[in-house]
Nucleic acid binder design. Structure first.
Lengths: 106, 106
DNA sequence: GGGCTATTTGGTCATTTTGCCAACCACCCT
DNA sequence: AGGGTGGTTGGCAAAATGACCAAATAGCCC
């Protein structure tokens, strides 16, 4: 892995890292239904506003969501919906694991 | 986000976290070409064997790779190839970001 | 058995990540 | 201007991660 590879994988990892947190996955899931303001998302998550705001800024920095300030509030929306396709794969991983554990226990 | 949601997103995050590291992304990329033993992967990564071994165990725990001990060495292979499809999306995110930054700088 | 190679595990330390609070900024309204 | 609401930022303590070394384990080969 030379220097060029390293920066390439680091950039990719930045995007993955942004999705490597339960709250942020939840936020993406909510935004899949349509844009929402920080206040709505905060209520749904059930954490401090500042916490949710920081999670959103991580997603934004990674390029996954976009923000749009309208009047008093900021609306976030998905910029790259293709991440939603990952869920099927993730569920596949989890199911395969569950199945395997069952088989091992038998 | 109730307790049930939380455990669901935590399980998903476990899979995402496993891929949220440059070295582990590199390992998955290598394994996409076919199985490889820890010694080969260690040489490719260029880090301590123990470090690579731990990265592989993270991937294994997440259910992304599988290990197979044959004689003296352990061969790892991809268990869920669908993660390879994510790269296109990640690259899409990165390209969109790059394009947008160019536009902003203009 | 003894030595050798391949891999995992335990321990330690430095770095990063998270979450909350408090303070601050931006916008709206009167 | 002054007050209220909605968000972001800075700071800090707690928790999680990552990398290396050293030690332990497992499977050859002689």
């Amino acid at each position: 892995m030379d220097a060029k590879d390293r920066t390439r994988y680091q950039r990719r990892a930045l995007v993955m890292k942004a999705l490597a947190h339960p709250t942020r996955l939840f936020l993406v899931d909510q935004l899949a239904k349509g844009e929402a303001c920080v206040c709505e998302l905060t209520a749904l998550v059930g954490a401090d506003v500042s916490t949710v705001s920081k999670h959103l800024s991580v997603l934004k920095y990674a390029g996954i969501v976009r923000d749009d300030k309208r009047g008093n509030q900021v609306f976030y929306s998905l910029r790259v919906p293709c991440v939603l396709n990952w869920y099927a794969c993730v569920e596949g991983v989890l199911e395969a694991t569950a199945r395997e554990q069952l088989a091992a226990a038998r």
